[in-house]
Nucleic acid binder design. Structure first.
Lengths: 187, 187
DNA sequence: ACCTGAACACCGTTCAAGT
DNA sequence: ACCTGAACACCGTTCAAGT
């Protein structure tokens, strides 16, 4: 899915843009100035737009690998019988990845939900991993059968957003703990 | 807390700015252009800044009443023995108010957490109501004793944000249902 | 005491001209 | 095939000048 330009200078520029964007987004969040990204990468603004027509495309380029890792990790957990704590561990990972940059939880949530998003393909692959993990956990009787993967990912993206906004020691763990208790609850 | 200017023209301008901002925020979210607010209100941009030094001050002016209503509603529920569904009903109300404008959940969350926020005083009053309601529910054995009001408000603000981002029929109710199950769960 | 609006600094996005 | 950078439209914020 990630477009690899043919010309060597184009490949170099693309790589430099990704590196620079990563550094700047990590520093100031995903709404950092694209002009500054281009400036720091040493290319003209038009070059940035040629490689990444929208900010979301740039984000997709940056976050693709991370989403693949999440899918792989979910599949790795399938080996053993899947307990609630395995699910919680994976959700913690998901929240943590989603919090890589300030502003990213929003893009992940939208990427999961909207076909038009440049992140959609990668998010869908990641959701596939989650769905397999959840199915195994349900089969093992570890979590409720009446809660969708989609809703769980949505609420955990919400938690990632909360933590991004107000942080606070241990808050992520406490809020994720509520999700675990809801998943484990018998109704 | 809401400053009432002495001069009649100033009072009129303040009121017009609030009306106009409400309409525009409802239409485009809380990051709508302040220049357009001033333009539509028929005042110069400097007048807007005199009345509301920051966007957050404007939001505080708009949302004060709503937060007071939430506090009152929580106290009204204290009359009867407080069950889980009462708590859930109030949380639904909180989520709904927080979703008045796109972008508002963020300001509410930050207003709850940060003393510096112009929304902090109103949010704190509202949190007071929530705290009394929760205490009554705990005393009645309706909800767990080991979950803080603060954390519940935070996760529900997260849900309001999720719904603001991706909506979806019944999603708000399903996610709030997870919070209810977590609150009702025995550990 | 309050209002006006020009001025400054910055940004997103497009596109004609170049190599 | 790709890069450059000027051009356009828009915005947030401040502040000297007015009434």
């Amino acid at each position: 899915m990630s477009s690899a330009p043919r010309r060597a200078d184009a490949r170099r520029n693309r790589a430099r843009l990704l590196e620079t964007a990563h550094a700047l987004f990590a520093e100031r969040g995903t709404d950092a100035s694209l002009e500054e990204v281009a400036r720091r990468a040493g290319v003209a603004i038009g070059t940035l737009y040629r490689h990444f027509p929208t900010r979301e495309d740039l984000l997709a380029g940056l976050f693709e690998r991370s989403l693949q890792e999440l899918a792989d990790e979910a599949d790795a957990l399938l080996a053993e019988p899947v307990g609630v704590e395995d699910v919680l561990g994976w959700l913690r990972l998901f929240a943590s990845h989603s919090g890589t940059y300030r502003g990213l939880p929003r893009s992940v949530l939208v990427g999961l939900d909207e076909e038009g998003s440049p992140l959609h393909a990668s998010c869908t692959r990641m959701q596939g991993g989650a769905a397999r993990l959840f199915a195994a956990a349900r089969a093992a009787g570890s979590i409720r059968a009446d809660v969708s993967t989609e809703d769980v990912l949505a609420i955990v993206a919400g938690i990632a957003w909360v933590v991004e906004q107000v942080g606070g020691d241990g808050r992520a763990d406490r809020l994720l703990g509520l999700v675990r208790d809801a998943l484990a609850a018998v109704r």
